[in-house]
Every structure is written in C-alpha cells, then in structure tokens.
Amino acid sequence: MKILITLIVLISMNEIQSVSAQEIKTVNFAQLKPLLHQTNDTTYVINFWAVWCKPCVKELPEFEKIRKAYAAKNLKVVLVSLDFGAHAADRVRKFLDRKEIHAHAIILDDPDANAWIEKVDENWDGAIPVTLIYNKEKRIFLSHAITSAELSKTIDRIIN
C-alpha cells in the first residue's frame, strides 16, 4: 500500500511539474516588435535579461513579485531572454522553473543587435538588464537593475 501511495504522489508531482513548466518561444526582432507597441488597455512590463547576467538574475524575483502583486490589474510581465545557443530555450525554462518564476518568457534570437537595440529605446546602449514599462499613454525605459519598490512606483506612475 505504501508503494502504491508513493507511486501516486510521484506521478502527481510529475504532472504538476509538467503543467507548470512553460514553453519558451524563440523569436526574432520582427516578431517581438509588435509587443513593444501595443495600444490596448494593458500595461506591459518588458524586461531584457539573460541567465549569464548577474544583475539580471538578481532582479528577476522582483518581476515575479510584481506579477503577483498586480494580478488583479491589467498588467503583463514579459521576460525577454537574450540567451543564445542550441539549447537556450531548455536552459531558460529550467532556470525559471528552478527560481519559481512564472512570468511569460520568450527568447530574442536576432544576431543583428545593432539594428534593433535603438528600436526598443533610442537611449539603450545594449547593456542589460533593462526594462520597458508602458501602456497606450505612457512609456518609461529603465536602463539599470531595479528593486520591486522602484518597479511598483514606476508602474503606478504609468497606470495612474
């Protein structure tokens, strides 16, 4: 009986893990660009980061806190990974699962960064982490690692 219960628990845990593991889509800049210019009633928090970037990794939990704190508001957090390589999607997915970060994530795989960096924001020099927070009326670009307090304050400025 104990073996049967253990087996059921293990199967259930596996099902829960497979449900929580998100699929990470890889896109080029042309596919990402529309996300940077939405005109609906949603406020977007778009963070550019990578698993190899220490300040990026340090601030990622802040985005998860914000995602949860603003769940009742019309806010969408998108993590745009700049990781690259043959297994980038698996690496990013496993990293986010391990850190229990459930915000929507995509990988931007477009090698001509010089062509698209300024299209994200004209003040971006290419360094990460950076965060774009916008809605149809306001747009703020933050070119440094941020805390959840700064993130909340900035989102509130955009929303209100």
Results as ranks from 00 to 15, higher is better:
residue 34 P to H: 01
residue 133 I to M: 02
residue 26 T to D: 00
residue 115 A to T: 08
residue 125 D to K: 04
residue 122 E to Q: 08
residue 25 K to I: 06
residue 33 K to A: 13
residue 33 K to S: 11
residue 128 I to M: 09
residue 77 V to C: 01
residue 86 A to W: 01
residue 82 L to S: 08
residue 133 I to Q: 03
residue 110 D to H: 13
residue 28 N to E: 06
residue 121 D to N: 13
residue 51 V to Y: 07
residue 87 H to N: 07
residue 19 V to N: 10
residue 119 K to C: 03
residue 68 K to W: 01
residue 144 H to K: 15
residue 154 T to H: 12
residue 106 I to S: 14
residue 44 Y to M: 13
residue 134 Y to I: 09
residue 142 L to R: 07
residue 115 A to K: 14
residue 56 C to A: 03
residue 65 K to R: 12
residue 27 V to G: 00
residue 103 A to R: 04
residue 63 F to G: 05
residue 66 I to S: 12
residue 55 P to I: 15
residue 97 D to H: 07
residue 60 L to P: 12
residue 156 D to L: 11
residue 16 I to R: 12
residue 64 E to H: 06
residue 100 E to T: 10
residue 142 L to A: 08
residue 59 E to F: 12
residue 122 E to Y: 14
residue 135 N to Y: 03
residue 94 K to A: 11
residue 118 E to F: 07
residue 133 I to S: 01
residue 118 E to M: 05
residue 105 A to G: 02
residue 32 L to F: 14
residue 53 C to Q: 10
residue 112 D to S: 14
residue 77 V to Y: 09
residue 83 D to E: 01
residue 127 A to Q: 13
residue 60 L to T: 09
residue 26 T to L: 01
residue 64 E to S: 06
residue 153 K to V: 11
residue 55 P to G: 13
residue 53 C to L: 08
residue 75 L to S: 06
residue 140 I to A: 03
residue 103 A to F: 00
residue 143 S to P: 13
residue 106 I to N: 13
